[in-house]
Every structure is written in structure tokens, then in C-alpha cells.
């Protein structure tokens, strides 16, 4: 799994977003033990301190928890994961709407466009 990091934004934010994405997508499943900070840093080719910072933030949000000496785990509380999923979905939708507005569509045009797409994709 590649960690695709962009150049113009803080690295720890991008690490947070990537880990969130993996949790939401089920790549990291509830209760899964994460690799050590050092290993994760190496996989992402980033500084361990930066990875540490990202994981601390995720811990603060309750998405991961640590067991003192035993390492870090993905939360088992499904509500937190569901909340994350809906937050991410909402963000995606906002971005989509924003782009469609920029192209000159109004809300009802966008909705009928989406419906049409959904039908052809089924």
C-alpha cells in the first residue's frame, strides 16, 4: 500500500487523512494492531516523530488507542468508525458539489445528473 504524500501540505495531516481513509475503507479493521511507529514511518518514508504526531492526533479523536507497552490498536467502537465514514463522505460530497457549482450546475441539475449516473452504473 503506497503512501502518496503531496509536497505542499503538512505531512502529519496527510498521514492522518491516509490512516482515516484506511480505517473507513476497512483496510485497517476494528481492533487491529498497528505496526510500530518506526515501522509505519519507514513504510511511509517519513520521520518517526511525524508519524508519532499523526497517531497522537488520531488517538485524541478516539480512532486508535494505545495499550501502554503493547502498541496501538484501531478502535473497536463501531460508532466512532461510522461517524468517521459519514464525515469523510460528507467532505467528499461537499467537494463534489463545489466543483459542480463551479461548472455552472444548480442543485437539482446535479441531483438528476447523479441519479442518471447511478442508474447506468447499476
Amino acid at each position: 500500500m503506497a503512501w502518496d504524500l503531496k509536497n505542499d501540505r503538512p505531512i502529519y495531516l496527510q498521514l492522518i487523512e491516509e490512516i482515516q481513509r484506511r480505517i473507513a475503507a476497512g483496510i485497517y479493521y476494528p481492533g487491529e494492531k498497528l505496526d510500530s511507529v518506526r515501522d509505519m514511518a519507514q513504510q511511509a518514508s517519513v520521520n518517526p516523530n511525524t508519524m508519532q504526531k499523526a497517531l497522537s492526533e488520531l488517538e485524541r479523536d478516539g480512532l486508535v488507542y494505545s495499550q501502554r507497552t503493547n502498541g496501538r490498536y484501531i478502535t473497536e467502537e463501531t460508532e466512532i468508525i461510522e461517524k468517521l465514514k459519514s464525515d469523510l463522505a460528507s467532505k467528499q460530497t461537499d467537494e463534489f458539489f463545489e466543483k459542480m457549482y463551479q461548472l455552472g450546475f444548480n442543485a437539482s441539475q446535479i441531483i438528476s445528473f447523479v441519479k442518471q449516473k447511478a442508474n447506468t452504473n447499476e
Partner: peptide, 15 residues
């Protein structure tokens, strides 16, 4: 810090 530079300037250290 690298992240401060990116946050404040919206660009990489290299840029």
C-alpha cells in the same frame, strides 16, 4: 519545522 513551512507558505521546503 517542515510542517510549519508547509502550513504557512503552502509550499514544500524545496520550493
Amino acid at each position: 519545522s517542515v510542517d510549519e513551512i508547509r502550513e504557512q507558505n503552502g509550499k514544500s521546503v524545496d520550493d
